[in-house]
C-alpha cells in the first residue's frame, strides 16, 4: 500500500494505492476558494489551512487547503460539502464519493434553472456576471419551423434562440444571475442559508482582505471606505472569515442546508459542524414533523 501527495499550482492530488484498488482525491486549485468548509466537516481532521498570504499586488490571496494523505479515508464528505465542487474523489478511476453512494452524506441541492425562452435576445448578462463560470450562453439561429412555433405561442419573433448551458456543480447560489437578469428567466436558490454581519468598530482601518478573497464579490468597499455586505449575494462559505485579522469583527453563520434526503449519523454531525447545534435540532424537528405528517396521511388514507 502506498500513499502519495502531488502538488502543483493547478491542483493538489493525494492517493492511496493498493494492489487492486486506487483511491485518489484531487483539489482543483482554480475552483477552491479557501472557504475551508472541508476542514470543518472532515471526521478525521485531515484538512489543514495554510496561513493566508498577500499576492504581488497587495491583495490577500485565498487560503490554501492542505490534506494529510496519511489521515484521509477518501470517503468524500469534504467533496460533498464543498460549495465550489473543488474536490473530486475517484475510486479505481471512477468518479464518485463513497459517502454519497452509500447514502451516508447528502449532496447539496444546486437549484439553478434558466428558462432560455424568457431571455432577451442577445442578452448574456448572466454569463458575464457569474463569478464562478457556471453559465455559458450562446446564440443559435432559429430554423423556420422553430420561428413559426414561437409565433404560434405568441412569443416575440427573432432570428436567434438563446441556448444556455449550466454547469450546476460550479454554482454556489450567489444569485447574481437572478439579480442581473432583465427578465424573470432565472430561478436560483441558495443551498447554504445564514447571516453575515460586520462589527464596524472592530473592522481594522484600511484592511480589505475579506473583500479580496470573497469568491462571489458579495463584499465591496463603500464610499466611506468601509466594507459593505451585499446580503443577497453572500453564499455563507466563510472564506472571508479565514482571512479576517480580527475574529470578532466578522460574524458569519450558517443556519440551514438544502440537501438531498439522507438519514445518517455522519450527516447529523456534519450539519452540526456546518451550522450549529440549533441548526441540527431544527432540521431534525422538521424531519420528525414531516414523518408525522406522512404517518397521519397514511392513516387517513387507510380509513
Amino acid at each position: 500500500m502506498k500513499r502519495y501527495k502531488a502538488e502543483s499550482d493547478e491542483k493538489l492530488e493525494i492517493g492511496e494505492v493498493f494492489y487492486t484498488k486506487r483511491f485518489v482525491l484531487t483539489i482543483d486549485r482554480t475552483r477552491c476558494k479557501g472557504c475551508a468548509i472541508c476542514k470543518l466537516v472532515c471526521p478525521r481532521e485531515a484538512v489543514s489551512v495554510k496561513p493566508a498570504k498577500k499576492g504581488p499586488d497587495g491583495k490577500t490571496l485565498a487560503p490554501v487547503i492542505d490534506i494529510d494523505e496519511n489521515k484521509c479515508d477518501f470517503h468524500g464528505i469534504c467533496a460533498a460539502a464543498c460549495p465550489f465542487s473543488a474536490i473530486t474523489i475517484t475510486a479505481d478511476s471512477q468518479e464518485g464519493m463513497p459517502a454519497v453512494s452509500k447514502d451516508v452524506f447528502p449532496t447539496l441541492i444546486r437549484d439553478l434553472e434558466i428558462d432560455s425562452e424568457k431571455c432577451e435576445p442577445g442578452c448574456k448578462k448572466c454569463e458575464e456576471k457569474c463569478p464562478l463560470d457556471a453559465i455559458s450562453v450562446r446564440f443559435e439561429p432559429l430554423t423556420p419551423e422553430e420561428q413559426n412555433e414561437r409565433k404560434s405561442r405568441g412569443l416575440s419573433a427573432g432570428t436567434e434562440k438563446t441556448v444556455i448551458e449550466l454547469k450546476r456543480d460550479r454554482c454556489a447560489g450567489c444569485q447574481v444571475c437572478w439579480i442581473e437578469c432583465p427578465t424573470d428567466a432565472v430561478r436560483v436558490t441558495k443551498f447554504y442559508e445564514g447571516s453575515i454581519r460586520i462589527d464596524r468598530k472592530l473592522c481594522p482601518e484600511g484592511c480589505h482582505s475579506c473583500l479580496d478573497v470573497c469568491p462571489v464579490n458579495a463584499l465591496s468597499l463603500g464610499e466611506d471606505q468601509k466594507i459593505q455586505i451585499n446580503d443577497m449575494q453572500c453564499i455563507y462559505c466563510g472564506a472571508c472569515l479565514n482571512v479576517c485579522p480580527n475574529p470578532e469583527a466578522l460574524k458569519l453563520e450558517r443556519t440551514s442546508v438544502h440537501h438531498t434526503p439522507v438519514e445518517s449519523g455522519a450527516w447529523n454531525k456534519g450539519l452540526e459542524k456546518l451550522t450549529s447545534t440549533q441548526g441540527l435540532d431544527r432540521e431534525l424537528a422538521a424531519v420528525r414533523t414531516g414523518k408525522a405528517r406522512e404517518a397521519i396521511k397514511s392513516l387517513k388514507s387507510t380509513r
Binding site: R44, D73, H75, A99, V104, S264, G265, A266, K269
Partner: peptide, 8 residues
C-alpha cells in the same frame, strides 16, 4: 479511528 458514526 475510521468510523464516521453514520449508524448505517
Amino acid at each position: 479511528e475510521h468510523c464516521i458514526e453514520c449508524y448505517k
